[in-house]
Amino acid sequence: MSLDLLFDPLFRLPFITGLLLAGLLPLIGMYLRLRGEWLAALAFAQMASAGALVAMVMDGPMLLGGALAALLAALFKGLMARAGAHAYVLMMLVAWGAGVLLVANHPLAEQAGHALFDGQLYFTGEAHLAASVVAWGVAAPLLWWLNRSLLLAHVFPEFHRARGLDPRPRLMVFDVLAGMVIALATVSIGVMAAFALVFVPPLIASRFGRSWRAGLALAALVGMLGYSAAFVLSLGFDQPFGPVCALLLVGLVVLPGVKSDRL
């Protein structure tokens, strides 16, 4: 295991980009988990991945392609709210189908497809870092603003409606925010790591968090620590980042015997 690369300036920017996302994805995941919509994260990630591939084939920016596809997915999810998990599965099937067809028919797409799945963390650029900083700047105040509505929609579904208020616009804002953040993460750190960071830290925080606020903090902390450890291991052992990150996070669930309530 060689750790020399860790101190290479070339890897600082990707590390910081991923670290920012590793703190933000678990926060999004906490609300998705609260709403029983964690499968939506995988649908968003797959759609973003397919969108990025389409953009690349069309000579466009992958980041923009991923974001547009995730935006479409968020809007579709909002319109198909009653379909629940069925809508997410349909989106995943569309994204998988489109992605595999692109990879099979376009040489460049094959390479990019592998990078998106394995995690292309080391190839993230300044645009990804800038987008991650903006994502934090937008998501932190938005989540603070949405927090009460999202919690009330779960524990007291009638609260807003009985007062003549429609909670759906705020829920839609959250869908779009989740889609954008997951799209950014997908094109920055890959589908597998993005989904693992949305899903696993909230699972641990839900078990050990003593309150909602403590749970949010714990989820972000687990995400950032898990990500940092995965970064070091994948670089040190010259392994693809995505699977290392996913396996390490799953290990964090299995080792302390986290109960998989409401999986």
């Binding site: 919690l151 524990v155 007291f156 925080a205 309150s211 309530d261």
Partner: peptide
Amino acid sequence: TDLRGVPITGRELLALT
């Protein structure tokens, strides 16, 4: 509502409403 695995305290619930 199913609240298993949701780390919300009683104090937080009252604050919500």
